[in-house]
Amino acid sequence: MKPIKSQSINETEIVEKAQAGDKSAIAYLVNTYSSRIYSLALRIMRHEEDAEDVLQETFILMIRKISTFSGKSSFYTWLYRVATNVALGKLREKKYSDKTISIDEPDFQSFKGYQLSEWPDHLEEKLDDEAFQNCLTMAMEELSDNYRAVFVLRDLENISTRETSAILNLTEANVKVRLMRARLFLRDQLANHLKCVGLPDGA
């Protein structure tokens, strides 16, 4: 298998070669995208072993299904879609969702009245504080899977609304609504958890 050199690479050609079963082209795609897919999986799954499972399954599926890639979207959008579906499927299988609060519930506590106190500036300076880190982790883990996926793709991966809608098979309006809800949820959960590090609770 002759490796593909990285200079003057035309990804469309590489994908076409991979579709024809060229192993060096497949290896090139795996090498190009494995880090981003691992990072995405880690952000959605929150556990390294689960992220590795998602990574492996994603590329197994990529190899198996690359012939169905039609080029209507960019290759990475297609691959992100595969990876996100694998991740969300695994979360459902493991019933991780049971541990989260569904923000579809009408009596969802986060959206009750807002009595606000201003957050201190430069909260990021508290990031070395383990208790504060735990607050951030807990808030993220309490966000339900489908909303976390939107937040991860839009706000952490910087994927556009249009691409996120393609990846998650949602309308763009739905992506915007879910993103807004996810942000508000995280904000309100974080406000509650901030009590644990002695900051104003904000809610």
């Binding site: 981003r36 880690l42 909260l123 990021e124 990031l127 993220m140 974080l190």
Partner: peptide, 21 residues
């Protein structure tokens, strides 16, 4: 409220940096 939402996003962007494989 909006400022604190912005702070929340900023905090997560800072803590959830892309991790290399």
């Amino acid at each position: 409220y909006v400022d604190s939402v912005q702070q929340t996003i900023k905090l997560y962007r800072t803590t959830e940096k892309e991790q290399s494989i």
